[in-house]
Nucleic acid binder design. Structure first.
Lengths: 152, 152
DNA sequence: TATTGTTATACTCTATAACTATA
DNA sequence: TATAGTTATAGAGTATAACAATA
């Protein structure tokens, strides 16, 4: 264009910048964790299990804001690589109760290492107080968004 | 788990928080702009056109970090709704030169309004200085990431 | 009859590969 | 022969819908 009309301010919005940076770091993170045979959604499931206690697949589908049939596929993979256990609830044999294993916790720790490396690279351009301010703001926004939190 | 092992620090990393929030705002933004018949990638193409001058589809594929065949589909849609023009370069008739129209600029303005509304809602939980600090940090990170910037 | 998990299927987004036309 | 764009096809990721087991 460049015909004198005001340039769009869209790229300066937090919405677009968060969307762009989010996609960027998500791609980097996905690249790193594929060495462990995991996708971001697998990690989201592991995180959910590491927080609360063991949970049914329906409960997890709610927490991850995905459909139950997707939890089946994610859990299949995680069970296959030994990251979770999957046992029928004796009191209600319809329910599959998932729980993190030691191997799952180790995988999660490796993912955390990968994430921290991406953090360090990304935040290198900021001063220490700028980094602290960003972390604070993200923490506030993340917990306000939390009800349905997932990785894309 | 909750067996005494340390809980994962993954959700506190900037990587995971940016990824999560980015997906959240991207979804909200996508929801808003579908009223205009646009997807985030369409907006990304319009933004690219509003910045530089008219550009060939190959150049745009480079800027958006997508494959040329995707630019075809995006441009088809944008041309169809009158947001861009698409003319053969007379000096090299292989090239299609895309340019933003007045209607495209108007669409972009509506998208900006939608993004600012999401910004306002999201940032309501932060104080004015916290908002300023976040905007500053995101601006720095966004421009450092910029080479291949897109919306997911 | 309602609910949990599963399977089968379809849809969206995007990439790869083959093709056309210009150069 | 090489390049811009296009078309056809395929793959990843996820949802919807039908189904089986259990309540």
């Amino acid at each position: 264009m460049n015909d004198g009309s005001p340039p769009t301010g869209l790229p300066q919005t937090v919405t677009v910048q968060l969307g762009t940076l989010g996609a960027l770091v998500a791609d980097r993170f996905a690249k790193q964790i594929e060495a462990y045979g995991l996708k971001p959604k697998h990690v989201a499931l592991l995180i959910a299990l590491s927080h609360g206690v063991a949970a049914s697949q329906q409960e997890l589908a709610g927490k991850l804001a995905v459909v139950p049939s997707l939890v089946v596929a994610l859990a299949d993979r995680l069970e296959q690589c030994g990251a979770i256990t999957r046992v029928r609830d004796p009191t209600d044999r319809r329910r599959q109760v998932l729980a993190l294993t030691g191997e799952g916790a180790r995988l999660l720790a490796r993912c955390e290492t990968a994430a921290r490396a991406i953090d360090d690279e990304l935040l290198a351009a900021l001063s220490a107080p700028e980094r602290a301010a960003l972390r604070h703001a993200l923490r506030v926004l993340a917990e306000q968004a939390d009800p349905k939190t997932s990785l894309h």
